[in-house]
Design a protein around this nucleic acid. Structure first.
Lengths: 113, 113
DNA sequence: AACACAAGTAGTTTTTAAGATACTTAATGC
DNA sequence: GCATTAAGTATCTTAAAAACTACTTGTGTT
């Protein structure tokens, strides 16, 4: 499939990159592709993110219906974050991103030499 | 293909999003997928980008060998920016991004209601 | 009762990205 | 010789993203 309607296509590129871009959003989504995770699990696995940043990013992803906050137990309260059905669709895209990155890591990710 | 080696995979997600992320980089690459373009052509088509920002982004994309600056004529000097052979490989990824965006635009891009 | 853990919130500061504005250099057309 | 276009550079300001530090609330643990 080709990119039809150039102008519209390019606007969509920017829109999608809004969702997945930034320092953390893509990583959060990638981690949630594997399985649902609790707040502090995400915090641990996303090395160095702060609580306030993680909260902000999760709220954003909830707002756009990519991620769902689910109370899975109260007393003591346990909350998990998972991709919505719709959010699951991002998995394929993330696979494509990783594939491209793996193929091209040598040419692109070298800072030295 | 699955995402093997979770930790590495997620680092790669972040790396790739560095390349393609930000307000302009994805759009510049998307436009260059179609055909090479001159500085002012890019400036026109990327509505509202400033010269200094465009210069900065192009230099970055040159540094990572995604884009090539080519003098195609002197007197008067004419320069064009084109994807390198390697840079062309991003086209497929952009197609995937656009496809995802098109499928999910209704659920994701609505701000109202 | 004191402490720890989970899941945050609140306020401030720092860093980074992007924008605004103005200038430059070389050539070309009028 | 003056204006215009192409392809930028230089400097400063603003805005947005992320980080830093500290605090909170509920619960359970010893």
């Amino acid at each position: 499939m080709e990119i039809k309607n150039k102008q519209q296509g390019i606007m969509i590129v920017a829109d999608v990159l809004d969702i997945v871009g930034g320092k953390w959003r893509g990583q959060i989504l990638a981690h949630l592709c594997d399985d649902p995770k609790r707040f502090n699990e995400l915090k641990t696995v996303l090395n160095k993110i702060t609580s306030s940043t993680l909260t902000k990013e999760l709220r954003y992803l909830e707002d756009i219906k990519m991620v769902e906050r689910k109370i899975i137990q109260d007393k003591p309260i346990v909350i998990e974050y998972k991709l919505t059905d719709h959010g699951m669709s991002i998995k394929d895209l993330i696979v494509h991103i990783v594939e491209w990155g793996q193929k091209h890591r040598d040419s692109v990710f070298k800072k030295d030499e």
